[in-house]
């Protein structure tokens, strides 16, 4: 952004041609179909959870890059727009990845109600906490 490059206002020539857009449209549809197919037949092709997450996420990022790059003319525009998008994306994903790690219930799974267990790295033998919702007295055992 050092020199002020002449802005050619409205009439900037359209960058892609119709055929280019049609090819891209087809590729986008193919990727979406591929994602659907992977998800639909995840058992038959025996894909594990982690690899599925990895492939599906990378496929969607490919689609993301295609739409942003060519359909939104990001590739032909000023570099500052690219910084804007990637800055926002990077900061957002970094912050919420950190938030997810902090908030993720490490030892307990909410579904099985374990979240009310003592969050003890070494699980003590019997100290299930009588959560205030659980009825009944604690068994009075001599010290």
């Amino acid at each position: 952004m050092n020199t002020q490059d002449a802005a050619h206002g409205h009439g900037e020539k359209a960058h892609g041609s119709v055929t280019l857009y049609m090819v891209f449209a087809f590729v986008l549809c193919a990727i979406t179909f591929l994602e659907w197919w992977i998800f639909k037949h995840r058992n038959s092709i025996g894909i594990t959870n982690h690899t599925m997450v990895f492939t599906l996420l990378s496929l969607s990022l490919v689609k993301f890059a295609m739409v942003c790059g060519w359909y939104m003319h990001l590739r032909y525009d000023h570099k500052s727009l690219m910084k804007l998008l990637f800055g926002g994306m990077l900061l957002a994903s970094g912050t919420f990845l950190a938030l997810g790690i902090i908030v993720h219930p490490k030892e307990c799974d909410a579904l099985k109600g374990e979240c009310f267990k003592i969050r003890d790295p070494a699980p003590a033998a019997d100290t299930t906490v009588p959560a205030e919702a659980k009825p009944g007295e604690a068994a009075p055992t001599a010290p």
Binding site: L91, G94, T95, A98, I102, K106, R119
Partner: peptide, 21 residues
């Protein structure tokens, strides 16, 4: 400005986020 997004949990040291956080 940039580091501002990396420090928010120092308002929550006492809520039991665990030693590493």
């Amino acid at each position: 400005g940039f580091l501002g997004f990396a420090v928010w949990a120092h308002h929550m040291f006492t809520v039991g986020m665990g030693p590493w956080a």
